[in-house]
Write a protein that binds this DNA or RNA. Structure first.
Length: 367
DNA sequence: ATTAGCAGCATTTT
DNA sequence: TCAGGAATGCTGCTAAT
């Protein structure tokens, strides 16, 4: 049976929540920014609503530039925790609609704070018309309960569903039946293929590929030569609209991290250690809230020349102790500072190799 | 000779 | 030009089997 997959994408999520919370914003351009803590509004645009987009503002853009494009726009700082709480409510609604697998789990997959996949093959018997009706119901329920809109894509696999959801935005729904996949892809930009960003797009252009159609017609062997086996074969399949990956609930993320920009470029250990402590606190908090322990510690440093450097250290055991994390992070940092003469601009701490922490891990056990 | 795990960087996305 | 934060993926390397 052909599968029925739904992709739900919340519309300009952060800005939509801010609009909802403050009706006086209605109709205005709203830009949600991540400020780095440095002066002059240094930072970049996280999300903005449609009036702001119409003015030419988009995510990733420096806030200062957004401000110069539209000085009258409303600029708000991100409230990530709040958006996360809204996200959880939305996701709980969506989860209800997903099929239940034989093992009792839902065929539901949250892919980011504002996106999720649902497999509703059972509920619909693979009928995408039926899937569309369910998609509409989902939109209505989210609107009714959370007062925000979302865009929905329905298709025979995750790739197509994901791309379909971006066709009609905001507050739209798009259904691509198996027989229409070819035509659908033909009309799409190469870089709108999920997984092809700027870099891959440019690389493809260099070998004369500028459309999905050309990519599909291209020799796989050649693609593999340029991109390697994994990405090469993936590109070919994607261009054909083929995607066998299943919708599966993730237990949690594989890595958790925090990164921050220093108040000023510096290589002062006092300031740096203070910053590390803050990052470690945040990471441990997230870890504790999910009951996870870690084994891999990675420190990221962006130097004043904007180059990124990472160093990591794998511990002998899984632990969840903040002091161990702090010491490991400090150690890596000290080593790094002694290797460079440049000032540090940003510092990040992340943990990986996560595991459900089983009870207490003592310092004794770690040593 | 293969595989597993790791480190560092690249990529995507918001 | 201006340059935030989070997470995952890829590649080449080294160590283990």
């Amino acid at each position: 049976m052909t599968r029925a997959i739904i992709h739900v994408d919340m519309d300009y999520f952060y800005a939509a929540i801010e609009e909802r919370e403050d009706p006086s914003l209605s109709g205005k351009a709203v830009v949600v920014c991540m400020y780095s803590g440095r002066g002059g509004g240094s930072g970049s645009v996280s999300t903005c609503n449609y009036p702001a987009r119409d003015a030419g503002i988009h995510s990733g853009m420096p806030c200062s530039r957004a401000k110069s494009i539209d000085p009258d726009a409303v600029f708000l700082p991100v409230r990530k925790e709040f958006y996360t709480s809204v996200s959880e409510k939305v996701m709980n609604i969506l989860r209800q609609y997903a099929d239940t697998a034989p093992d009792g789990t839902k065929t539901f997959e949250q892919v980011s704070i504002d996106e999720a996949f649902l497999d509703i093959t059972q509920a619909t018997g693979g009928d995408l018309e039926l899937a569309q009706e369910i998609g509409m119901r989902i939109k209505e329920e989210v609107k009714e309960h959370e007062h925000i809109t979302c865009s929905v894509g329905v298709g025979p696999n995750k790739l197509i569903a994901k791309m379909a959801s971006s066709v009609r935005k905001p507050d739209g729904i798009t259904v691509i039946k198996p027989g229409d996949v070819g035509d659908f892809l033909k009309g799409m930009e190469l870089t709108s293929l999920w997984g092809i960003g700027k870099v891959t797009g440019e690389k493809l252009e260099q070998i004369g590929i500028t459309t999905i159609e050309q990519l599909a017609a291209h020799d796989v062997i050649d693609l593999i030569k340029v991109f390697g086996k994994k990405k090469g074969t993936w590109l070919k399949k994607a261009a054909d609209g083929v995607d066998e990956s299943v919708v599966k609930e993730k237990i949690g993320s594989d890595q958790i991290g925090r990164i921050i920009t220093l108040p000023q470029n510096s290589r002062d250990t006092e300031l740096i250690f203070q910053t590390i402590d803050k990052l470690v606190e945040d990471v441990i908090d997230k870890l504790d809230s999910r009951g996870l322990s870690f084994r891999l510690v990675t420190v990221t440093v962006i130097t004043s020349d904007f180059k990124t450097h990472t160093n990591s250290h794998t511990l002998n055991h899984h632990v969840s102790d903040r002091n161990i994390l702090r010491d490991a992070a400090r150690e890596i940092l000290i080593a790094f500072i002694s290797e460079t003469t440049l000032d540090l601009r940003r510092i990040g701490v992340r943990v990986g190799n996560l595991q459900k922490s089983s009870g207490q891990t003592t310092l004794f056990e770690y040593l």
